[in-house]
Amino acid sequence: MEETAHKGAEHGNGQSIHLPSPTGWPIMLAFGFTMLLAGLVTTFMISIFGFVFIVAGCVGWFHDVLPHEQHEEVPILEQPVVITTSRAVVERVKLTGEHRPHAAGGTSAVMAGIQGGIAGGIAMAIPAMLYGLITHHSVWYAINLLGGAGVGDWAHVTAAAIATFHWQWLLIACVIHGIMCLLVGLLFVAMLPMLPRYPVVLCGLVAPILWSGIIHSFLGFVNPELSAHISWPWFVVSQIAFGVVAGLIISRQTHIHTSKHLPLAARMGFVIPGMTHHDSDAGTPHGEKETH
């Protein structure tokens, strides 16, 4: 290890080391405490016995540490420790110089995902509310569908009830919608660089249709009421609105187009020797600490 220079710096004089000396008081105290409680299930005398042990243990312990801690000197015996490996060679993932990935990971990517999610969520709400306005003359329709059915205590609700304003349902809808949009935004930012071609097509068309298909397949069970009132064409339109907006924002912010020619490992964002921008500052270990 590199610390050879520190040898014998603080402890002892290189010949021996201070260690706390062995002591019997802790076991005595533990025994006393156990006896104290054991008296409750046996006889009172055991408790008294235990109490005496506790007092003795405390006093003895006290003398161990005060006025100063009792030490024993443990002599240091020279015994070389060999730190070596038979596997000195480390394989590398083969990469050429221009394959250095751009700053795609880190907090900036997460921020891009969050922004994309929020923007997409707003964009998605527009067709959804439009749908409510056109079919049921109420902007609350889609919101109530999500919020009211989302918590599952609907039983045979009427279309009129869905079309009126309920603050609880609005609140729940906002929470569910917000969480889902953020999550999908993050998912996009995680996945898009791995499939760098046509990001907007992927986000705006493939993902929404896939997603709608999955939801369509089990919504009838997850929430029959919601399933009964939903309009699938409008649902797909909303999903596409989300995908296009979120995809655009994310692909702009994370320079996805530049990673087209990278190997898969790089696109997946692996931190691997030879692929990291830390490479050049090898000699300045102080620098790395600040990045935590």
């Binding site: 610390e3 520190h6 000699g283 270990p285 600490k289």
Partner: peptide, 10 residues
């Protein structure tokens, strides 16, 4: 052989 400097955080 290692040439890494001794890391001594003051």
């Amino acid at each position: 052989m290692s040439t890494a400097p001794i890391y001594a955080d003051e």
